[in-house]
Write a protein that binds this DNA or RNA. Structure first.
Lengths: 238, 238
DNA sequence: GAGTGGTCTAGACCACGCA
DNA sequence: GCGTGGTCTAGACCACTCT
C-alpha cells in the first residue's frame, strides 16, 4: 500500500538500454539501432522508445543527431572535462587541465570515506593524489578515493589519463552522470604550499565531490583544493 | 539560407503561455486551464500543449500535479531559497537565511556592472547591500545590482522581503529561471570583518551571480561573500 | 531518394485527488 | 465517479544527412 509497484514502460526501456550500453553491446561513439528497430526489438511503440531515448540524452548517456542517428556518448577528454572540470578563465573559456605529480596506492577506506561512498567500513580503496595544471601553472590538488571492487586493477593503468571519467567508462563501463559537490573556502596549509605555488594562508577553494554512476551508485569521492586567483569556478543553476 | 526560420509549434505555445503568465492572466498558485482546454483554445493538439507544459515544468515556471491540475509556480520563500540559496548544514539540510543591516540606493551603473547585465553604460540601477543570517549568526554579505528600468520604485518596498525572487515575480512579473555563478576563494577584508564575525584574513567564499529571467534577460547581478566555516555551498551537476 | 530523428495529431487507457 | 495529468500507441508529415 505504500511502495508504488508501478513502473512506466519507458522507464523500463531506459534501464534496459543503460544495461546494454554498460555491458558494451554498443561502444561509445557507435550508433544505436534506429527508434523503429529498437521498438520492434523490444515490443513497444516507437513513441515509448523515443521517450526513453530522450531521457538518456538528458542524462548525457547518448547523443541524438537529427538525420543521422543515436550514438553512445563519448566521454572524451573535451566532453568530460568541460562537464566536470569547472575552472574557467576570466574571459569565460573553460580551462583544460593536465596532470602531474601523480601517485596511486591501495589501502583501507577511512570511515569518513566509506560513509561518503556508502560502503562498509574498511573496504579496499584506491587513493589517487595528483596536481592539476592549467597553462603549465599548478591550480589544484586532487585526492580521489575509488572503491577497489568497482575498479579492479586500476593501479595497472598508471600513468592515469588526464580524463579519469573516460577511463571509468572505457575500462570499467562506469558512466558518471552526476555529481554532488560541497564547496568551502579555506586557507593554504603546508601541503598545499608544496604543490601549488601559493603562500601559506592564501585562500583556496575546497571542493568535495561525490560522483554518481548512471545506475545511482556512488562511485568516486574526490577532494580538490583550488587556487582561484586566476581562474574562477563556474556553475549554472536552472 | 542560414537562419533557420523554423519554430516548432510547441515552442511557440511555450512562449505564448510564458507571456500570458507574465502578464498576470494566471497568478502564482492558480491553476491553468486543463491540457484539453488549452489545446482547444490555441487550436493545437493536446499532445503539443503537453510538450510545452513539460518544458515549462522543467524550467520551474509551473507545477504539474497528477489528478489535480497545472499550477503557476509560486516562488515562495521556501522554493526560491531552497533553489538559489545554497548554504547547507553539515547534515545536508539546506539553511534558510534571514536578512539584516539592509540598505538600498539608486545610482548609475559602473561599467563592470553594466557589462555583466548587458546594459548601456551609466544607466540607473538599484544597489542593495545586506547581511544574511542563519541561526542568528551572520554568514554572508550580499551586494545586489538591479536595473532601475526593470524594477521601477523598488526602493518603496523597503524593508525588502527575505526572498527577493518572490518579490520580483509578484510585483514585477519577472520569473528567475536560471543563474550563472563564478566562485572564488578570498580572504576577509575590513568591510567583511565588520559585518561577518570573522577575523581579518579568514577565508571567504565569493559568489558572483548573474540571474536570468525566463525570457533570457539578465535581470540581477549579485556578489555574495560567505563564511563557510560552519556551512558548505552545495551544488549538483548532471 | 532513402533513412534518420523531430514534430504533430488523435485516441485509448491508467493513476491520482477529490467530492 | 469524475476530471486531471501520465502513459502508450499508431500513423502522418517535416527537417536533416548522406549517397
Amino acid at each position: 500500500m505504500d511502495s508504488p509497484q508501478y513502473r512506466p514502460l519507458y522507464s523500463q526501456v531506459y534501464e534496459a538500454l543503460v544495461r546494454r550500453i554498460a555491458d558494451g553491446e554498443w561502444q561509445p561513439g557507435q550508433a544505436l539501432p534506429s527508434e523503429q528497430a529498437l521498438a520492434m526489438q523490444l515490443g513497444v511503440s516507437q513513441g515509448t522508445v523515443r521517450k526513453a531515448l530522450d531521457a538518456l540524452a538528458l542524462d548525457k548517456v547518448i547523443d541524438r543527431r537529427q538525420g543521422k542517428g543515436t550514438y553512445v556518448a563519448e566521454l572524451t577528454q573535451e566532453r568530460s572535462l568541460f562537464r566536470f572540470f569547472r575552472l574557467t578563465r576570466p574571459d569565460g573559456q573553460r580551462a583544460v587541465p593536465t596532470s602531474g605529480d601523480e601517485s596511486i596506492k591501495r589501502r583501507h577506506a577511512r570511515s569518513s570515506e566509506a560513509k561518503a561512498l556508502e560502503l562498509p567500513e574498511g573496504v579496499d580503496v584506491f587513493e589517487i593524489i595528483r596536481t592539476r595544471f592549467v597553462d603549465e601553472r599548478p591550480v589544484a590538488i586532487e585526492r580521489i578515493i575509488l572503491p577497489e571492487a568497482y575498479f579492479p586493477g586500476l593501479d595497472q593503468h598508471s600513468p592515469l589519463p588526464n580524463a579519469l571519467y573516460a577511463l571509468y567508462q572505457r575500462e570499467y563501463r562506469i558512466n558518471i552522470v552526476s555529481a554532488n559537490e560541497k564547496l568551502r573556502a579555506d586557507v593554504a596549509r603546508r601541503d598545499d604550499v608544496k604543490r601549488l605555488s601559493v603562500e601559506l594562508g592564501a585562500p583556496l577553494l575546497q571542493v568535495e565531490r561525490v560522483a554518481l554512476a548512471v545506475d545511482g551508485r556512488r562511485v568516486e569521492w574526490r577532494l580538490s583544493r583550488c587556487d582561484t586567483s586566476t581562474l574562477s569556478y563556474d556553475v549554472t543553476f536552472t
